[in-house]
Amino acid sequence: MLQFPGSCDERDALNACRLAGGEARLIWHGDDDLGGVDAVVVPGGFSYGDYLRAGSIARFSPAMEAVARFAADGGPVIGICNGFQVLCESGLLPGALLPNDSTRFTCHQGELVVGEADSPWTSALEPGHVLSVPVKHQSGRFFAPPDLLEEIVSGGQVAFRYSPGSNPNGSLDDIAGIVNREGNVLGLMPHPEHAVDALTGSEDGLAIFRGVIGAGVG
């Protein structure tokens, strides 16, 4: 669990991993050694304030350089919200996340449809399955040039879509989350770490954390 100055959801993500049956700890943004972890969560928030462009500074942190090496070796990495933005800025995932078409922050319980991507993170989920997971962000509009978008869609890299009619930000093709070509790196805007307890709304997000643990890599 990376921790940047300005991270917001890292404690929630720690809690989610533990509820899913994993062991989790924080890794300081200045550390360039991940300490032998089995999987990495790049959490949501406003890393380094995000005053320039969401995720644009965090990519230069020593910890992110270590994450890039970890991902290149096939290690499972998930970037949630700001973490997704960081992974795109780092080039670990294709495309970019632009400000919402409303220009406003949006926070609501959203519906996510599981896509066709093959990834340890989605190994416990069937394509077409619908999850109830909170959506909250200011810059979540997924964008890729037409050729790249075609490659992502036809290459089976779409992990999650907003359910029909519920696209909250103008994302192309309703895309809410994608994986890299190898499938080990997942980025998504909605917040599965905030959907781990029925008391606070939903526990559908646990399946993502359980997926990576169940896949034997967590």
Partner: peptide
């Protein structure tokens, strides 16, 4: 909806 009402995982 323009406010994050759930960060912190306490909001019942």
């Amino acid at each position: 909806e323009q406010y994050d009402s759930i960060v912190g995982s306490r909001t019942v």
